[in-house]
Design a protein around this nucleic acid. Structure first.
Length: 511
RNA sequence: GACCGGUUAGCUCAGCUGGUAGAGCAACGCCCUUUUAAGGCGUGGGCCCUGGGUUCGAGCCCCAGACCGGUCACCA
């Protein structure tokens, strides 16, 4: 840490010292009793009202306009920004004008935390403001923040848009870009809305292991770590599916978990190495029932977040109102390509894929070919929420075989804005079938597919004790948050998206 | 991983066919008791991402690398 201080950082450290020299503690310990927020005052104060006449609030100083013996300033708390009016002779009624002339005008810097008392009033120009009677330094800021200004038309000037700064120093992004705070508040609202919905149905929220001796429940490469005492390899979970099903075996009839999962794969605006899914398992239900649940829950989420089922996403307006369109995968392919592939064998599928210019390779079997055709020709065109049902069995080793359709499983995904947002099945609860499916995965693994599932004997043992018929669901919370907040990148809905280290020094610090 | 684009003051950005660094905001000094992208006068601030090269001379051209973004590949 031998970085040279900038001119402005030096000035701020000098100001800190000068505050100390005046006998003021720039980092006081005692609480500052706040009795109101900026937003409350702005929402409720009326001209001439006797409300808000003895107020006390705290926040960051974000702007300051000094006009000689009086000043205006912008104070920002978590609810928003409010204007302060500071008059020299009112905050310094005695001879000593240091608090105004030195502390307020010079030594407090933009970004410092201050607490003020005073009363609400409306300025000549009509802005609800606080007439300040006392000021207290609550915490000093030693680094200059970017200064973002908003003009009378609401147009923002010099907004901090550099993605690297925004993601690496999210705290700065949050201070300076109020819409970013809103996005994350909305994300939390989304979680709350789902919890309400699921708790009202008496499903219980549970926690299952993140460190797992075997990784399962999805097809993905894991992060690997080591437990020293046990001297064993552990994996960060790629999914929690197999643990939640064990709980269904154990007698819970509805369980869900918001699960941080980890996949050791590429990154993109849709992929972060750690991400969140909600998984839900409900006994005695099937995938048709689960589709109804997804519709109802996501519709409620949209209503809770936006007050309407219509959500602007990029150039589209997406309407989550029930019912959503439902296509089988074959129907979807026929709808978008005009080709009915439902009775084709592998050779015919291969030929069809080539005709449709879908890139394929020799290792792809029937199921994979169908999935490729769907992915290339249909998925991106599904903007409004749509259920796609009945997937090829090869790609769904944890889903139950379709009750009537040979070669398919009872599985659906909801696609929205061209991307999958959820994945669900009628869960496979036949332990013998499940063992065979795992064994098929082992074969695929031996042929070099790094994402093939591993066989989990304990999970099979659990199934052998008997699992009730169960419907299971996974929703990508980050993907859904992107849609619900109109965010273009997963990085915009994660506080701290994964980044490479800033420099080599940093790389070596911890190891 | 491949291709394309980016990296210049604390922030947002200019910088021409190569001639030795600019603006606005922020900072510093002075003025100003209802301003609001406050205003006026003045001042300082730069490893131009890093390392090589070409050149009399490189922010600019060439090579290598770092990081960021986009697209693709990968990824249920």
């Amino acid at each position: 840490m031998s970085a040279q201080l900038s001119e402005q950082e030096i000035v701020r450290r000098e100001n800190l010292q000068k505050i100390l020299d005046l006998g003021i503690n720039p980092f006081p310990s005692e609480l500052f009793d706040v009795n109101v927020t900026a937003k409350e005052i702005k929402d409720n104060f009326k001209e001439g009202s006797s409300d808000y006449q003895k107020i006390s609030l705290a926040g960051r100083l974000m702007s300051r306009r000094v006009m000689g013996k009086a000043s205006f300033a912008g104070l920002e708390d978590s609810s928003g920004r409010i204007q302060l009016y500071v008059n020299r002779d009112e905050i310094c009624p005695d001879e000593n004008k240091d608090l105004y002339n030195k502390v307020f005008k010079k030594l407090i810097d933009l970004g410092d935390f201050i607490g003020v008392t005073g009363y609400a009033f409306i300025t000549k120009v009509g802005e609800i403001s606080i007439h300040v009677s006392s000021i207290k330094v609550l915490s000093k800021s030693l680094r200059p923040l970017p200064v973002v200004k908003t003009d009378a038309d609401g147009k923002v000037h010099d907004a901090v848009t550099d993605p690297e700064l925004r993601y690496r120093q999210r705290y700065v992004d949050l201070i300076v870009n109020p819409n970013v705070r809103d996005t994350f508040k909305k994300r939390t609202q989304m979680y709350t809305s789902m919890r309400e919905y699921l708790n009202a149905k008496d499903y219980i929220e549970v926690e299952t292991p993140i460190l797992q001796p075997l990784y399962g429940g999805a097809a993905a490469r894991p992060f690997k770590t080591h437990h020293n005492t046990l001297d064993m390899t552990l994996y960060l979970r790629i999914a929690n599916e197999l643990y939640l099903k064990r709980l269904i075996v154990g007698g819970f009839e509805g369980v869900y978990e918001f699960s941080k999962d980890f996949r050791n794969e590429g990154m993109s605006r849709f992929h972060n190495p750690e991400f969140t899914q909600i998984e839900l398992y409900v006994a005695y239900k099937d995938y048709n029932w689960m589709m109804d649940l997804v519709e109802e829950m996501v519709e409620k989420v949209a209503m809770d977040m936006h007050g309407t089922t219509e959500v602007q996403v990029g150039e589209h307006i997406i309407n989550f109102q029930r019912p959503w369109k439902r296509f089988t995968m074959y129907e979807a392919i026929e709808h978008f390509t005009g080709i009915d592939i439902s009775n084709m064998d592998e050779e015919e599928l291969r030929k069809t894929a080539k005709e449709l210019h879908v890139p394929i390779d020799k290792t792809m079997a029937k199921g994979k070919l169908i999935d490729e055709i769907f992915g290339e020709k249909c998925e991106a065109q599904l903007i409004q929420p749509t259920f796609i049902t009945d997937y090829p069995i090869e790609m769904s080793p944890l889903a139950k075989k379709h009750r009537t359709k040979e070669g398919l499983v009872e599985r659906f995904e909801a696609v929205c804005n061209g991307k999958e947002i959820c994945n669900a099945f009628t869960e496979l609860n036949d332990p013998i079938d499940q063992r065979e499916r795992f064994e098929a995965q082992l074969e695929i693994g031996k042929r070099g597919d790094e994402e093939a599932m591993v066989l989990d004997e304990d999970f099979l043992r659990a199934l052998e004790y008997g699992m009730p018929p169960t419907a299971g669901l996974g929703i990508g919370m980050d993907r859904l948050a992107m849609i619900m907040t109109n965010s273009n990148s997963i990085q915009d809905v994660l506080f701290f998206p994964q980044m490479k280290p800033e420099n080599n020094e940093e790389k070596n610090v911890t190891s």
